[in-house]
Amino acid sequence: MRFLTFLLAWAVKAAAIVLTIVVLNFCLIRLAPGDVATVLAGESGAADPEFLARTRAEFGLDKPLAAQLLTYVGNVLTLDLGVSYRTRRPVADMVLERLPATLMLTGAAFVFALLVGPALGVLAAIRARRPADTAITVLALLFYAMPIFWVGLILILVFSVTLGWLPPFGMRSIIPPVGDVARALDVPRHLVLPTLTLGLFYVAIYARLTRGAMLETAGLDFVKTARAKGLPEWRVVGAHVFRCAMLPIITFAGLQAGHLVGGAIVAETVFAWPGIGRLAFDALLQRDYNLLLAVFLASAVAVVLINFATDLLLRIADPRIGAGR
C-alpha cells in the first residue's frame, strides 16, 4: 500500500515533468532561425514565395505559434507524434527503428564503464600515492579531458587504419562476411571502437569518483572498527569501505544511464553508427521539427524513468534514505 502511493505520486510528478519538457522543447526549437520550408526550397532550388507558403501551409507552420503548440501538445497526449516533414513517415516509427542500435552502443559503453571504472578506482585507492595510482589518475584525467570525437578519431587511426584489426565505421559490413562465426561477430566487431570511445570517458569519471569516495570512506571510524574486529584486509576494503563508497557511484551511474538514449550523438557521428543520435543530428540540420521533438521526448522519458530506477536502487543500497535521515 505504501509502495502504491509512492508509485502513484511518482507517476503524477513524472507526467508533469515530461509535459513541461514537451512544451519547453517545442518553444526552444522555434528559436532557431529557418524552418523546413526554407531547407526544402534550398535543396530543390525553387525558392519562390509561393512554394514556401504552400509547404508551410501543408505542415501547419503558417498558423500562430500558440496554436501550433496546442495542436502539438494535444497530439502528444494522444501519443501521436506526427510525421516527418522529409520522409512523410510517422516519426515514432523512425525513432523506434533506430533505438536498438543506440541502446546497444550506449548500453555496451555503460556496462564497460561500470565494470572497469570502479575497479580502477578501487585499485588506485588501495595503492594511493604509489605508481599504480599515479598511472590510473593520469590516464583518467587524460580520457576525461580529451574530447570524445578526438578519442574516436585516434582509435580509428590506430586500430582500423594502422593495425587493420577493427572496422572503422558502421554497424555491419557492407559485404556480409563469409562463415557463421564471422557473421555472428560482425556487429560486435563494429561495436568495439564506438563503445571504447564513449566508455573511456565514463571510465575516467568512475575511476576518479571511486578513488575519491574510497579514500574518504577509508578514513572513517567504522573502518577502524572493522580492522579492530580482526577482519582480513580484503573484507575491510570490500564489505566496509567499498560498500559505502558505492553510493556516489550509483548516483552517477543513474546520471549516465539517463544518457542511454540521447547521449551518443558525437560517437554515432564519428563512427557513422545508425542510431538515434545521428537521426537527431540530421533532423536538426533539416529543421525536421517533428522528428527532432520525438527524439527529445524519447530521451526525456528515458531520463525520467531511469531517475526513478536510480532512486529505488539507492533506497535499497542505503536504507537511511527511506528512513528520512
Binding site: 572513517l220 571510524d221 567504522f222 577502524k224 572498527t225 572493522a226 580492522r227 579492530a228 574486529k229 580482526g230 577482519l231 582480513p232 564489505a239 566496509h240 560498500r243 559505502c244 543500497a317 542505503d318 536504507p319 537511511r320
Partner: peptide
Amino acid sequence: RRLRGARMAMIFQEPMAALHPIM
C-alpha cells in the same frame, strides 16, 4: 589480525561513527 577482535577488542568514542552505517 588473529588477536584483534578475538583476544583483544576495542570500543570507540562515537558509536554512530564507529558502526558500519548500513550493515
